[in-house]
């Protein structure tokens, strides 16, 4: 069964054939709409399709038949060349380290603050939340030059760990907000019962709240992972060495350097697309549901 509305209306009134999936009877208009929507989807996928098709075509083939034609035969040299020229495995590893640890630390910090705000209902919680909301909205441009100086003073400049520290904090401002909203609606009966039985805040945190909000925290972490993976400005300013660059940074700065011909450009784009698409396919449900986390409760 698909969505609640379908199961609610579809079954009761409009569906004559109750068998499979409860679909409504298709008329001309529904087919027209369907064709339009599918066409739009294909148009949306078209740029990605172009990257794929041209990444696996010989430069000569591209020259003769242009970007739209299918490859005459499959040619992986452009992808291989870009892969080794920019040392892509190293970039993947750097990105993975930064994203993973930001997800971990960012969610941990968010959870602790949100616990005090949503469960502890500390005084001044609205002020703290408002502060964090502003913190998440400030442009990175207004942080980047002081951070550039600070990171040199603490000898973290040009290290992937500086990104872990910075993004864990920036994202935890958002995470605190999200988790506070979730924890604010935590069933009070459970908390009261625990307090009556004399549970300390630490026990409430570990034994009661944490197990219940773990899925939300996981979704938040998944989001942090993707966001960090895609960050550009702060890595651009703080990572000088090629060896420390992340995937999205290295693609941003090497465009043009190794990619003079169109097929290598397509190969570079394809290599940048693939990790994200794989990640999306694995965490599809979490990601497309989580988008709405921040929107409306």
């Amino acid at each position: 069964m698909s969505n609640p509305v379908e199961s609610a209306i579809g079954r009761k009134i409009w569906s004559p054939n109750r068998g499979k999936q409860n679909l409504k009877r298709r008329g001309v208009s529904s087919w027209l709409v369907f064709a339009t929507v599918i066409l739009i989807s294909l148009v949306w996928l078209f740029p990605l399709w172009m990257a794929l098709v041209n990444a696996i075509k010989t430069p000569l083939d591209f020259l003769h038949h242009g970007p739209l034609a299918l490859p005459r035969h499959i040619f992986l040299k452009s992808i291989q060349a870009f892969w080794t020229d920019v040392n892509f495995p190293q970039k993947l590893l750097n990105s993975f380290i930064v994203s993973f640890f930001v997800a971990l630390f960012g969610v941990a910090i968010s959870f602790l603050s949100a616990f005090a705000i949503g469960i502890g209902r500390i005084r001044g919680r609205y002020f703290v939340l408002g502060l964090f909301m502003v913190a998440f909205t400030v442009p990175q441009e207004s942080l980047v030059f002081p951070l550039y100086h600070l990171s040199q003073q603490v000898h973290l400049y040009n290290s992937v760990w500086v990104l872990v520290v910075i993004f864990s904090v920036i994202y935890s401002a958002f995470g605190t907000y999200m988790l506070s909203v979730v924890l604010g609606s935590f069933p009070t009966e459970i908390l009261e019962a625990a307090k009556v039985d004399g549970a300390s805040p630490r026990r409430i945190l570990w034994n009661i709240v944490l197990p219940i909000v773990r899925p939300t925290m996981f979704a938040l972490g998944t989001f942090f992972f993707v966001w960090v993976w895609n960050e550009y400005l702060i890595p651009l300013v703080l990572l000088a060495d090629n060896a420390n660059q992340t995937v999205s940074l290295s693609l941003g700065v090497t465009s043009g350097q190794y990619t003079s011909d169109p097929t290598t450009q397509a190969a570079a784009a394809l290599l940048g697309i693939i990790p994200s698409v794989i990640f999306y396919l694995i965490f599809q449900r979490t990601l497309s549901r989580g988008v709405t986390l921040g929107a409306v409760k």
């Binding site: 949306w44 990257a51 993976w229 940074l249 941003g252 450009q265």
Partner: peptide
């Protein structure tokens, strides 16, 4: 349909930029 439309959301903006440049 939803996945096709959502796809550009998860690709790094730098990658999208070089793709569209091309």
């Amino acid at each position: 349909v939803r996945a096709s439309l959502f796809m550009p959301q998860i690709i790094p903006i730098t990658v999208i930029s070089i793709l569209w440049n091309w």
